[in-house]
Simulated assay, not measured.
Amino acid sequence: MTGKTHITGGIAASLAFAQITNYDPVILLSAGVVGAILPDICHGGSKIGRALPVLSKIINTLFGHRTFTHSLLFLLLIGALLNATPLHEAAIAGVLVGMASHFILDMATKRGIKLLFPFKLNVRFPITATTGGTAEYFVFAALSLLSVYFGYEAFAVYL
């Protein structure tokens, strides 16, 4: 999936998560966007890869694309690292929800992800889309609509 689809997925997931928690939706939303792009640190052409090119190159050289940074192991590691910081619980939850949305979206691509890294098993859904293709456009549109719906619900108290 492209960066814009991952960001929109992170927004939709964070706002949906805000519906079932008492976390501040603004914090969840902001952190969810960060989490949604974080797994692509392994790809030099991604938004985060271009922002941190040296780190991206190191991670890609060590692990490749859609392996370690797209795994449950990475999700648990990031969760443990964030829990060791003084970050607000909503920020930690937002990052993790955003990362989970990224994993789910990439599992809907033909290549899938190494969710159980270091095992070489490739995980993907039975029906997949091509990155940047027509099906992804429809996924992006659906996520955009969900973001509006969940955003209205999450921010209705401010209206």
Score class of each variant (00 low, 15 high):
Ile11Pro: 06
Ile11Tyr: 08
Ile11Met: 12
Ala12Gln: 05
Ala13Leu: 11
Ala13Cys: 08
Ala13Val: 09
Ala13Gly: 06
Ala13Tyr: 05
Ser14His: 08
Ser14Trp: 11
Ser14Tyr: 06
Leu15Lys: 04
Leu15Trp: 02
Ala16Lys: 05
Phe17Leu: 13
Ala18Gln: 05
Ala18Tyr: 05
Gln19Cys: 09
Gln19Ile: 11
Gln19Thr: 02
Gln19Lys: 10
Gln19Leu: 12
Ile20His: 03
Thr21Trp: 10
Asn22Asp: 01
Asn22His: 05
Asn22Gly: 04
Asn22Leu: 12
Asn22Phe: 04
Tyr23Ala: 13
Tyr23Gly: 08
Tyr23Asp: 07
Tyr23Glu: 05
Asp24Trp: 09
Asp24Pro: 02
Asp24Ala: 07
Pro25Glu: 00
Pro25Trp: 02
Val26Glu: 03
Val26Lys: 15
Val26Pro: 03
Ile27Met: 15
Ile27Gly: 07
Ile27Val: 15
Ile27Tyr: 14
Leu28Asn: 11
Leu29Ala: 01
Leu29Thr: 01
Leu29Val: 02
Leu29Met: 10
Ser30Lys: 12
Ser30Tyr: 06
Ser30Glu: 01
Ala31Cys: 09
Ala31Asn: 07
Ala31Thr: 04
Ala31Gly: 04
Gly32Pro: 12
Gly32Asn: 05
Gly32Ser: 07
Val33Leu: 14
Val33Asp: 04
Val33Thr: 06
Val33Met: 15
Val34Phe: 15
Val34Gln: 14
Val34Asn: 10
Val34Trp: 15
Gly35Glu: 04
Gly35Gln: 10
Ala36Met: 14
Ala36Cys: 13
Ala36Val: 13
Ile37Lys: 11
Ile37Arg: 12
Ile37Cys: 10
Leu38Thr: 04
Leu38Trp: 09
Leu38Lys: 13
Pro39Gln: 00
Pro39Asp: 00
Pro39Gly: 00
Asp40Ile: 15
Asp40Pro: 11
Asp40Phe: 15
Asp40Tyr: 14
Asp40Trp: 15
Ile41Lys: 14
Cys42Ser: 14
Cys42Arg: 06
Cys42Trp: 11
His43Lys: 08
His43Leu: 11
His43Ala: 11
His43Thr: 02
His43Val: 07
Gly44Cys: 06
Gly44Met: 08
Gly44Arg: 15
Gly45Phe: 06
Gly45Asn: 04
Gly45Leu: 06
Ser46Lys: 08
Ser46Glu: 01
Lys47Met: 09
Lys47Asp: 00
Ile48Asn: 02
Gly49Asn: 03
Gly49Pro: 04
Gly49Tyr: 10
Arg50Phe: 05
Arg50Gln: 07
Arg50Val: 06
Arg50Asn: 02
Arg50Met: 13
Ala51Trp: 14
Ala51Glu: 04
Leu52Pro: 13
Leu52Cys: 12
Leu52Met: 15
Leu52Ala: 12
Pro53Leu: 12
Pro53Ala: 10
Pro53Gln: 09
Pro53Asp: 06
Pro53Ile: 08
Pro53Met: 10
Pro53Glu: 03
Leu55Phe: 14
Leu55Arg: 14
Leu55Val: 13
Leu55His: 08
Leu55Glu: 01
Ser56Asp: 01
Ser56Arg: 06
Lys57His: 03
Lys57Arg: 12
Ile58Gln: 07
Ile59Glu: 02
Ile59Met: 13
Ile59Pro: 07
Asn60Gln: 10
Asn60Gly: 10
Thr61Trp: 12
Thr61Leu: 11
Thr61Ile: 03
